[in-house]
């Protein structure tokens, strides 16, 4: 589309409020994290003064035995749930993309239906069953319900990715003299890998973001970051944990934001593939 300079600049101007609106809470949580304790409640958006006390409290101080295990749990649970989902979904999506069999539409439909599932509906029965079979407050006790979030998402996104792969290239490579293993390894894997990787990232975010299962099915030892944040308390009953929560929020936000920024294009493609063809 042709645009003259005036239009170009007016659009740039319009994007300014969007950028400000998006960044305000992000800057704000950073600001709270670096505000010294004395300035915590000064109602200023920008910090007057700078201190790393909150980060110290979280990483080495009194709150570290709450935060660090939670961080570890979040990473472990997220990675296990992601690995299981992506492996199962890769086989499933391969079948949906390449084979013609009755029931594949049904599989996609069920995946979609499951992803609309109200998460809290699973909590009550799982809470009851997990307590009686000893899965309450354990890593597997979180991984299993996480599959209900991550598996349908992986199936849906991977199917969309795989449907765009030009599978004929595999045969073409074989015609050119490659063995079927070579054709798979040198042609198909490089084509499929970005899709699998992107699905892994989106799936991991979903598990990483979960709050409902995390607070309902854990009490201490398997608690993940979002749940731990909600149960942070100040040093005394009358001291707000504002700074500590903000510092923890900053620490868990930075790596994820960097990942999203690095793989922005692919993540957008993955997120929208479920809804719109293309």
């Amino acid at each position: 589309m042709e645009q003259n300079n005036k239009q170009k600049w007016s659009l740039a101007l319009v994007s300014l409020p969007v950028i400000i609106w998006t960044l305000i809470p992000v800057i704000w949580i950073f600001s709270l994290a670096v505000k010294p304790q004395a300035n915590q409640a000064d109602n200023n958006f920008w910090p007057r003064g700078f201190s790393l006390d909150n980060f110290e409290l979280i990483l080495f101080g009194g709150a570290s035995d709450l935060f660090l295990p939670a961080l570890l749990n979040s990473i472990i649970v997220g990675l296990i749930a992601t690995t299981i989902s992506v492996i199962l979904a890769t086989f499933c999506a391969y079948a949906i993309a390449r084979l013609n069999f009755s029931g594949k539409k049904m599989i996609l439909f069920v995946a979609l239906a499951v992803s609309f599932f109200p998460v809290i509906s699973l909590v009550t029965p799982l809470f009851d069953v997990w307590r009686s079979i000893g899965l309450f407050d354990t890593i597997p006790g979180l991984v299993i319900p996480y599959l209900s979030l991550t598996l349908p998402l992986s199936i849906w996104i991977l199917s969309a990715f795989f449907q765009q792969i030009p599978w004929e290239l595999e045969q073409a490579a074989q015609v050119d003299g490659a063995t079927s293993w070579q054709a798979f390894r040198k042609v198909i894997v490089p084509l499929a890998a970005p899709g699998v990787f992107t699905t892994g990232i989106i799936t991991f975010f979903t598990a990483w973001n979960d709050f409902v299962f995390a607070i309902s099915l854990t009490s201490e030892s398997a608690r993940t970051v979002p749940a731990a944040l909600a149960f942070f308390t100040g040093a005394s009953q009358f001291e707000q944990p504002t700074g500590a929560i903000s510092a923890a929020a900053v620490i868990v936000t930075i790596p994820v934001v960097i990942l999203v920024l690095l793989f922005q294009k692919r993540i957008v493609a993955g997120l929208t593939s479920g809804a719109v063809k293309g």
């Binding site: 998006t22 949580i29 929020a249």
Partner: peptide, 21 residues
């Protein structure tokens, strides 16, 4: 890029940010 940032932030973190704001 910027528009994608809220998506990558944990919902609980967003809730705390607005709560404290």
């Amino acid at each position: 890029t910027i528009v994608l940032i809220p998506y990558s932030i944990i919902t609980v973190v967003s809730a705390f940010a607005w709560l404290y704001a």
